[in-house]
Design a binder for these strands. Structure first.
Lengths: 358, 358
DNA sequence: GAATGATGAGAAAGCGTTTTCTCAGAACGT
DNA sequence: ACGTTCTGAGAAAACGCTTTCTCATCATTC
């Protein structure tokens, strides 16, 4: 009877079991396969990675041993050796926001296509934690997508170099090798306002979003432009937020403002407002017209359906991955030097806006 | 002039730079800190991990060097040495579904509390990919949460051992050390049906969900019970799905069924249906009553507001983490042996249900 | 038939940590 | 003053893999 060549004595030679670091049976490693196939670790590695400098006969033997033992290379070991993790991180301010969920989904699906996974870091709108969280995540991943970070400009600039490769969403850096994807909220809100004016509304109100939100700032800039172009229009600014509740709670303020055309910060706020107005018996769009922003899937199914500015959110996530992929693969991209990629929202007229009351 | 003790010659001795594996300046490693502090790697490691067998003076020197160089331990290296990644994976069938988003959020936030991160694996409802995806994810993580897996029972049983530690959501295994969190969809749908009966409805319809969905099966079981308890009630089964579109498209079938109380598979389907009925001029709840399931945040803000069965979805995610944590820490839990933890949905009566037409 | 060149596989050196092992040197007791 | 125990830090092994380096072996050529 042969002694070791039969390949059955795999486990007994392993130190792990006797060392007792882990009481449980150790996972199958490259050494086990090597032993079983009667070759060295190196050869097994070569076979597993499709290196063709291996004798076909031996390769077959290795593959047989691998499948028989159901061997799967340990990703951590590979990561350490290769210096990459095949994982990217995404930092979002709030995972409960449908916008960020959609971006996450687009990113995750696109990355999966290329064999990459996504690690989540939710800062829960705590901007002070963002930096640590981002650094933490970055070290575990090959790259980082920062989604509308709430941190200040200075901090972002300072952090940027240590987070490379990085892709920004709805934020920019002076750093020339950080791609940035922006939605033109300013343009979008102007189009919505114009739409209301076209319908005959002369008194508008804007339900603002969170103060720290950069996208809220862009909307304000857009509205300023709008007001200079339409000095005849009265525009009331109302404090709001980014949630259902914010919209719902601002019903009183909205009604009190006397405005007939309401620009909500986003679809969520608009839906909250819609619901509040309905409870009050205010008819939409007969009495008051309401617009949202983002065109989340729900916007098609509200009553009435919601006029909004459609943002290709999921595509934004996809694009983020494509930029990231180029960075990781060191594909030179002139798109980065040309500044941020800007996505134009598309006006989506539905049932929540109508002609102003006689 | 001292030669190396000044600690300034840190970079020059490093092989990485000259080796040229990476053109870019190498990341700061433990060796750099050791060199700068004039101690060995081992000591640096001890200090970084709060091992108190280090002379306070030396420890201080190491810490100073570490902060000065802005040293952060490489997580991959740690993972390899420690045999853990501080990461858990979650496999979901469809990230665009609000239910799974909520679970993800609950899981992610709870795990973050304990310093763990979450890796996403979206199977896109392709049940054949689920197994590979799960295995892949598991190897990168310390544990796996399988969220309503679509794979067959046999495959799940077979896979279970290799995925430990694992937590199941809305699925069970015979495997006694796999915690399972279940929502009692059967009970919930019965309560909704009872609610409609109490309102005087005698002709009901159920808009079914995806065939592969285990939770749909539970609803069907619940409805069977309901029918035996209420032989006088007529219940029509209609094919549906789990999306807005499914609900919206089934308007014709719903109206044709002649039912006045509609049990939609979930809130999304209910919202799609609501919207379709509104377009047709069918009044809710005057002409037809509609119920959803899950109580997603949007359910409070539909018009009319949606009667539904509230499931503590985010809490489900949290609980999933707590179970996982116990598994990872080897905390003996009798809860597992006692079978799945069952969450009872709570009937949430809102505006979409009303008395049956006289 | 010996020198040269391919070819292919093993040995060993990384990757960046943690942790065990080992051994100086200090503190202590007799 | 000498041996013993402790303390604390360095050397080295381990984690699981990839990849370079090295060297047999065999085919080729003059």
């Amino acid at each position: 009877m042969p002694v070791a060549e039969d390949g059955e004595g795999v486990g007994e030679a392993r130190k792990g079991a006797t060392l007792g670091r882990r009481a449980t049976t150790r996972r199958i490693g490259i050494a086990d396969v090597a032993l079983k196939a009667g070759v060295s670790h190196a050869t097994v590695s070569r076979v597993m990675n499709g290196n063709f400098t291996v004798d076909p006969a031996i390769a077959a033997r290795v593959r047989a041993a691998a499948t028989e033992l159901n061997y799967q290379p340990n990703p951590v070991g590979r990561s350490l050796a290769l210096g990459k993790t095949d994982t990217i991180g995404i930092v979002v301010p709030d995972l409960s926001n449908p916008t960020f969920q959609a971006i996450l989904r687009g990113l995750s699906m696109a990355a999966a296509q290329d064999g990459y996974r996504v690690l989540i870091a939710d800062s829960s709108e705590v901007s002070s934690e963002e930096a640590i969280l981002a650094g933490e995540a970055r070290r575990r991943c090959d790259g980082l997508v920062l989604c509308a970070p709430r941190m200040g400009d200075a901090e972002l600039e300072e952090l940027a170099p240590s987070l490379q490769p990085m892709v920004l969403i709805n934020r920019t850096t002076v750093d020339t090798h950080t791609p940035s994807l922006m939605v033109d909220y300013g343009q979008g809100i102007q189009e919505l306002a114009e739409h209301l004016v076209d319908l005959g509304h002369t008194r508008l109100a804007f339900l603002a979003g969170p103060a720290r939100s950069a996208s809220n700032g862009l909307r304000l800039v857009g509205l300023k432009k709008f007001m200079t172009a339409h000095p005849e229009i009265e525009l009331t600014m109302l404090d709001g937020g980014s949630t259902f509740e914010a919209g719902h709670q601002s019903v009183d303020a909205v009604v009190a403002s006397g405005a007939t055309g309401i620009l909500a910060f986003n679809d969520l706020v608009a839906m909250g407002l819609l619901s509040g107005l309905h409870e009050r018996g205010v008819r939409v769009p007969e009495d008051i017209s309401v617009t949202g922003f983002d065109d989340i899937p729900f916007a098609r199914y509200t009553t009435p359906t919601l006029t909004t500015a459609a943002v290709p959110i999921t595509e934004l996530g996809q694009q983020a991955w494509h930029r990231m992929r180029d960075l990781i693969r060191h594909v030179p991209s002139d798109a980065v030097a040309e500044g941020p990629t800007v996505f134009q929202p598309r006006l989506e007229v539905r049932g929540s806006t109508g002609a102003a009351k006689g």
